[in-house]
Design a protein around this nucleic acid. Structure first.
Length: 226
DNA sequence: TGTTGATCATGT
DNA sequence: ACATGATCAACA
């Protein structure tokens, strides 16, 4: 798929996917469907990037650089509740001098997001097989003043702890809307950080994730009729 | 090793 | 039932 030339074209493409199953979309794109996501956790995101015309996914840029839009799939149940937290970006543990909310990576990443809900559960909460899950109504979102304030507060709290050498004291419960959790191949992975005395040490890489109630609120504000 | 894409699966 | 901590794959 070629790159969409404007926001409207991207929105039309993604709206045309609403109601389709992942099996239908993958089949049209000649992409094989895994039986489940156990060994393909990012498969849905990669599929959507492909059919919407995003470039390779391994770049430190928005998915649609010319449009400044980040694509995020959001697994939800049939009642519109997100089933997982949403990964945003890796948390820098070094080089934080001079970084503030206005110039931080997380703010840039969340500046404009195309959310694509994927319905993963039946009304009686049964898991739907991957190929039969349906794409919901996607929408474009930018943080409201209130949402940005919440994000900025949490980002500042977590970043302050990192700067103070307290990264290993941070748990998923910190933050109202944002949390810091492991983001690594396994628990043995290491990246450099600084301790409270300013000495370098190795620790588990972490990432920023949006908590479920926050993405749920975003979704609820953007409910619309198909 | 770090970036992208995330969900798995166990403990509470 | 649910969130936290752990983990999977591809690519640069």
């Amino acid at each position: 798929m070629n790159i969409p030339t404007c926001e409207q074209e991207l929105l039309e493409r993604v709206q045309n996917l609403a109601g389709l199953t992942l099996g239908e979309v993958a089949c049209d794109a000649n992409i094989e469907i895994p039986l489940d996501l156990k060994r393909n956790k990012g498969w849905i995101g990669l599929l959507l990037e492909h059919v919407l015309g995003a470039g390779a996914s391994s770049r430190p840029e928005p998915d649609f650089p010319s449009l400044g839009i980040e694509l995020k799939t959001l697994p939800i149940n049939s009642q519109g509740k997100p089933l997982e937290t949403t990964f945003v970006c890796v948390a820098p543990l070094t080089g934080l001098v001079g970084i503030n909310w206005q110039n931080c990576w997380l703010k840039q990443k969340l500046s404009t997001v195309l959310w694509v809900p994927i319905i993963c559960d039946t009304p009686d909460k049964k898991n739907i097989p991957l190929a039969e899950r349906r794409i919901g109504s996607a929408f474009l979102w930018s943080p409201s003043v209130e949402e940005e304030q919440l994000l900025a507060l949490d980002w500042q709290e977590l970043t302050d702890m990192i700067v103070l050498g307290e990264v290993e004291k941070i748990h998923g419960k910190h933050g109202q809307v944002l949390q810091l959790r492991p983001k690594a191949a396994n628990a043995q992975a290491k990246t450099q950080a600084f301790d409270k005395n300013g000495k370098p040490f190795l620790t588990l890489p972490r990432g920023f994730y949006l908590k479920i109630p926050f993405t749920q609120a975003i979704l609820n504000k953007n409910l619309r009729i198909n």
